[in-house]
């Protein structure tokens, strides 16, 4: 299989626009096109949000079933995309909530937040080096909260605009920008703080 492209859910060429208008008319072919187009990105997003494989798969199915029968009116491809991402997040959140309540322990577990899993591919880099690189990256990212991780992921790993991130995370673009710059600062500051501590330790 080809390496997956890393721009999540980008549909913009004219071809897709005509497919999209067919989709809105209820055309089955266009429906399955968009389904197959988005399914993997939704899956990846669901897993990133902490969903379990089968739960995420079911949630994606439910969302598309709903769209198929309720014929929601989407104003644009982007509108559809945000709707899908947001619905998936809500659904996973609800599934999680209902599970947490039903456990006999009575202690509700923390809602899984967004996480970022790093993979260093097995190419020219030595295994030992790969492990170190992964550790370093994970260590950097571990300083962030789940929400910061999600924003960072959408901004830098999926190369989304602030407006898009704001839409998905249900906040204003201004707030999204602030969230991201704060995350960056946090990663830098922590590093410098460590350095200061380090010097304080070695200098009597």
């Amino acid at each position: 299989m080809l390496a997956k492209s890393h721009c999540i859910m980008n549909v913009s060429t004219p071809d897709y626009t005509s497919l999209f208008s067919k989709f809105k008319e209820g055309d089955d072919h266009a429906f399955s096109f968009f389904y197959e187009f988005y399914i993997n990105d939704l899956y990846a997003y669901g897993i990133s949000l902490g969903g379990e494989k089968e739960v995420v798969k079911d949630a994606v199915q439910d969302i598309f079933l709903k769209i198929y029968f309720e014929k929601k009116d989407f104003s644009s491809v982007d509108h559809l995309k945000y709707f899908l991402l947001k619905s998936l997040k809500n659904r996973l959140y609800n599934v999680h909530k209902s599970k947490a309540v039903s456990t006999t322990t009575g202690i509700s577990s923390d809602v899984h937040g967004f996480s970022i899993t790093t993979t260093v591919l097995d190419r020219i880099i030595d295994e030992e080096d790969r492990t170190i690189i992964k550790e370093q990256i994970d260590d950097l990212l571990s300083k962030l909260t789940a929400r910061q991780k999600e924003a960072i992921y959408l901004r830098f790993m999926q190369e989304m605009e602030y407006e898009e991130i704001a839409e998905i995370m249900e906040m204003t673009p201004h707030a999204a920008r602030k969230l991201i710059s704060r995350s960056l600062k946090r990663m830098r500051d922590d590093e410098q703080l460590m350095l200061i501590c380090f010097f304080m330790l070695i200098l009597p």
């Binding site: 997956k4 899956y43 990133s48 798969k57 899993t117 993979t119 591919l121 790993m157």
Partner: peptide
Amino acid sequence: LYKDNIRFNDFSM
């Protein structure tokens, strides 16, 4: 190397 070898949340079916 970084561009070619590092992936984040590389989950796919």
